[in-house]
Write a protein that binds this DNA or RNA. Structure first.
Length: 117
DNA sequence: AATGTGACGGACC
DNA sequence: TGGTCCGCCACAT
């Protein structure tokens, strides 16, 4: 397996319950500036086998990218169960739920505060 | 080698 | 808010 793919998997595993991350951000954290499409492809082709919280990955517009009747409903349900809210247009407030891997790391280094909500 | 295709993203209008 | 366009990237034909 490629290093990038491995990194992507590890990062997705670290997304906390009740939070989400975007394809593009995951790609950057894994070391590729424009790896969004590749991140999506990795999930599309083999994610379920890695036991990943795949439902916590959404697009930069704060929306679920999965087509309706092809996973959309399931992903939305899983997120709602974790307490994530959708607005009238089925969008998620990234300012509130986005998990920033880097900031989370820094904060846990100096203080022992919990993740913001 | 050339072209098509996505669970993408950002810029623009 | 929404729609289009174009750049990106790896994989499939």
């Amino acid at each position: 397996m490629e290093a990038f793919t491995q990194a992507v998997i590890e990062i997705i595993k670290r997304i906390p319950e009740g939070r989400v991350c975007t394809y593009g951000r995951i790609g950057r954290l894994a070391g590729k500036a424009n790896g969004g499409r590749q991140v999506a492809w990795i999930l599309h082709s083999s994610s379920r086998r890695h036991n990943l919280p795949w439902h916590r990955v959404i697009n930069a517009q704060g929306r679920i990218s999965l087509p309706k009747l092809r996973g959309y409903e399931e992903q939305k349900a899983r997120l709602q169960i974790e307490g994530i809210a959708f607005d009238a247009a089925d969008r998620i407030d990234l300012g509130k739920y986005l998990w920033d891997g880097e900031r989370a790391y820094q904060r846990s280094r100096d203080t022992n505060n919990e993740e913001p909500r």
